[in-house]
Write a protein that binds this DNA or RNA. Structure first.
Lengths: 204, 204
DNA sequence: CTCTTTTTGTCACACCTGTGATACCATTCG
DNA sequence: CGAATGGTATCACAGGTGTGACAAAAAGAG
């Protein structure tokens, strides 16, 4: 059987093309014909690697989910044990910056993820992936805060998740001109306040 | 000339129908024919009140922008002057809850706004409105923090905006099962920390 | 070589979209 | 009354969509 073609690689290429379309045209711009053109393939070929339009999209959201999951677990939580003050802030900051659109690669993933999250509101097909991601994120952050001995880790994790989500949406979408530096410093400020570094200078 | 029909009211009805479609089917579900069906009108009538598909959407995003703007300026900022502690938290909380999807009306507006914000990333048509909204929000919150004599109001406003955005996205989208109560308490917790009420109970 | 299986390519179909161009109705004005 | 105008209703067209059904090509297996 002629299996010259690396099937997995081809699928990856097609998904990558879908990512580019997601970025440039948004969710509704990802049609089979456009994906075929973007990946320099015939629509017949694309349909050979993906049964459906739907299954292509599911593969795409799964891919971005996997990548985000990998970013989440890149740094072991145990390594946070014992850290305090600015060292704790920096360690946590490094972990969470993995999820922020601070470079082109992460920007693409953030956009793709955002498009799917919004699409999932109406299209239940994508919910398993987005819900799994949200659950993983909640768990990892909560655990990290617990190891760092933060009071009420669940509540503080909720706030951090909200901050992350807001920052991602703001910087990905062009309504606030929220630059990379601003995103990072805003996150850092929030982490400092969460970890109760800088003991609240009250000025009166 | 037979002007029996209240033109503005009709336009409002159509926009309301567009809102319902935005909620139930998302941005790409808002077609002229569907809007016509949803508003119990003929497509010819819809096109009589709105030249374009595009101009209908612009009218819709403008409407939601106006409503959000009204919510932002509902409470005068001056009324915050002199407030401290829990009173300040509650006052600010009440203002900001206007923007959160805490009831059905606000939920619809949040969804509509979210759909347009995401759409605006790729479709520059909607940017003027979304950018104006973001600017207004930034200004109002910054002013409020200034009146409440918070240090570095701009930076703290940025964080509050991020929290609001994240909470809205999380509660509107079904990936985290973030209930109304949880949204409110999370916001309140953040405002308490911003206004430095509850002087950080460290437990060791 | 032939056979088999993968990969590519092409039609056609039904459906939905926005839109241009109308016609028709109804009501108010002169 | 007639006429003008706001409102309603259709039709047709070009363009895009996913998909079913194929055929053609290409390359390893025997």
């Amino acid at each position: 059987m002629p299996a010259r073609i690396d099937l997995e690689q081809r699928r990856r290429d097609v998904i990558e093309a879908a990512f580019r379309l997601l970025v440039s045209e948004g969710f509704s711009g990802v049609s089979l014909r456009k994906v075929a053109a973007e990946s320099d393939l015939n629509i017949g070929s694309v349909r050979h690697y993906f049964d459906d339009h739907r299954s292509l999209l599911v593969a795409a959201v799964t891919e971005v989910g996997d990548r985000m999951g990998a970013r989440l677990t890149r740094y072991p939580t145990d390594a946070l044990a014992g850290l305090t003050g600015e060292a704790a802030v920096e360690a946590l900051q490094r972990r969470l910056e993995e999820l922020l659109p601070i470079d082109e690669e992460r920007r693409v993933e953030s956009i793709v993820l955002t498009e799917f999250i919004v699409a999932a509101r109406v299209n239940p097909t994508f919910r398993p992936v987005t819900e799994q991601m949200a659950a993983d994120m909640r768990l990892v952050i909560t655990d990290a805060l617990r190891v760092l001995e933060v009071g009420d880790p669940a509540e503080e994790a909720e706030r951090i998740i909200a901050v992350l989500g807001g920052l991602i949406l703001d910087s990905v979408t062009p309504h606030g001109s929220l630059g990379v530096e601003r995103v990072r410093t805003t996150l850092r400020a929030h982490l400092r306040s969460t970890l109760r570094t800088t003991p609240a200078p009250i000025d009166d």
